[in-house]
């Protein structure tokens, strides 16, 4: 029997270990080998960023491809986008799961992106990818957006509903997030530059992980960066502040693949990936996240179960 509902701190503690594993390159894991008939061609290396949702998504695509007979290698927990995205360009990875808005911002060197329309962001992203030999395949309706989150008590006590309301916060608003949050426009940097808040202070924690959740709960920070599909928000009654200045771009989930791989395998590969992408929803993602983050299930097991339920593993 799997032990349910371990304390957040145990998770926090374990995530420290995971962080180090991250720094070392992470582990490689695959589904069951030899399930499919075997398709001739190059190995497809799937890489994932170091948080639960991206690991689940990487496993979903990776396992489905493996089951369909492609030679797949899944490398989990590599690190953040700053580390993972260049690996795709360098050819060390072939497939990663991205979020349209943040990926576009990253491709443009962290500058602000004016557009807010989903399709326009997607098109702009593919334009940026074109000369790098990368392709963003069909995007999902599922979105996972960076959010400014406070506890219910903080929201009520200081009358916080929108991010702009932070301007009226008495004293310094301590905002926690992963180390990269500080320099990202979609995160802390955006609070200062887009919202023009001058009473905010950054506190480096982990990337929307257990340490961040615990710091928010214990009042060590006043607000924190979490993702909208994160189970911790509902589980702890946190309040997501409204992004009234549209700091956030649309963040549709989108698999990004090296064009070489698409050329090598053709339409069969693309249509399988697109089918999976179309089946993903924001709600199902939140549920999958809860299974990993709260129920402590393994991302690969959660992914396999989802693939089974959605008919991708039948034969």
């Amino acid at each position: 029997m799997r032990k349910k509902r371990r304390s957040h701190l145990t998770v926090a503690a374990l995530s420290v270990v995971a962080l180090l594993a991250t720094a070392c390159g992470g582990d490689t894991g695959g589904g069951d080998p030899g399930a499919g008939g075997g398709v001739e061609g190059p190995t497809i290396t799937v890489g994932t960023v170091d948080f639960a949702e991206n690991r689940i998504l990487g496993q979903i695509y990776g396992q489905a491809l493996e089951h369909a007979g492609y030679d797949v290698e899944i490398t989990e927990n590599i690190g953040n986008r700053e580390l993972v995205a260049p690996q795709l360009e360098d050819g060390n990875l072939d497939l990663i799961v991205e979020y349209t808005g943040n990926a576009l911002r990253f491709e443009r060197g962290g500058e602000d992106v004016e557009i807010r329309d989903e399709q326009e962001v997607y098109d702009a992203l593919n334009e940026a990818y074109a000369d790098k030999g990368l392709t963003a395949l069909r995007m999902s309706e599922a979105q996972d957006v960076d959010a400014v989150v406070v506890t219910k008590e903080t929201a009520e006590e200081h009358g916080l509903e929108r991010i702009s309301d932070i301007a009226g916060f008495e004293g310094t608003f301590r905002f926690g997030g992963g180390p990269e949050c500080e320099t990202r426009l979609s995160c802390f940097k955006g609070l200062e530059e887009v919202y023009g808040l001058d009473n905010v202070e950054f506190v480096p924690l982990d990337v929307a992980g257990p340490i961040t959740v615990e710091a928010l709960k214990s009042g060590e920070v006043d607000g924190a960066n979490l993702f909208t599909t994160q189970s911790a928000i509902v589980a702890n009654d946190f309040v997501v502040l409204e992004d009234d200045q549209q700091l956030q771009l649309p963040q549709n989930i989108v698999p990004v693949i090296r064009q070489e791989i698409v050329d090598a395998y053709g339409d069969d590969l693309v249509s399988l990936i697109n089918e999976i992408t179309t089946s993903l929803t924001t709600e199902s993602l939140t549920e999958l996240n809860a299974k990993v983050e709260i129920d402590q299930e393994d991302p690969d097991a959660v992914a396999e179960q989802w693939l089974r339920e959605n008919g991708f593993l039948e034969e």
Binding site: L19, E82, L83, P179, E180, T183, P204, L205
Partner: peptide, 21 residues
């Protein structure tokens, strides 16, 4: 300690790593 949200000089190593600096 910086791995567990601590301070000190380790902060530069962890933050630099995260920010690709």
């Amino acid at each position: 300690g910086a791995l567990a949200a601590g301070g000190g000089l380790g902060r530069f190593i962890i933050d630099g790593f995260g920010q690709k600096d």
